[in-house]
Design a protein around this nucleic acid. Structure first.
Length: 116
DNA sequence: TGGTTGACGGTGG
DNA sequence: TCCACCGCCAACC
């Protein structure tokens, strides 16, 4: 099992939240590590999200829908071309190494500044 | 217990 | 537009 958490009962739950958030990303959409982190409750834990994604041992988690900021592919298990292809199959258009309509396919994240 | 790593984010040059 | 530096957070050794 990949359940080798060092801190039982602590932020280990954060990892679970991250996986849940990623799992909620609809097909044809993408989210940045920062977005996932924010949705998980830690808008500054983008790096931690990357580490969790690295573990990404759950087939239910479309880790390929998680990209870096600016619409860049970011990293992946090996070739970014793979990640790009998977997204392309979902309808995500690319413009070179970046997503063409990044702002369109990006999941909506409630900004704490956007308060009526 | 403490330090290093890493699929990042943002700013500056 | 691209590269480099610094900052933040969780997991691993």
């Amino acid at each position: 099992m990949t359940t080798k958490r060092r801190s039982p009962g602590i932020p280990a739950e954060f990892a679970r939240r991250v996986l849940t958030v990623v799992r909620r990303i609809p097909r044809g959409r993408v989210a940045t590590y920062g977005d996932v982190a924010a949705l998980a409750g830690r808008p500054r834990a983008s790096r931690a999200v990357g580490n969790i994604m690295r573990n990404c041992a759950a087939p239910d988690v479309p880790c390929h829908r998680v990209i870096a900021a600016g619409g860049r592919l970011g990293g992946y298990g090996g070739q970014e071309i793979t990640k790009r292809s998977m997204l392309a199959q979902e309808g995500v258009l690319f413009h070179g190494r970046r997503i063409a309509d990044f702002r369109t396919v990006r999941v909506k994240v409630p900004s704490r500044r956007s308060r009526s």
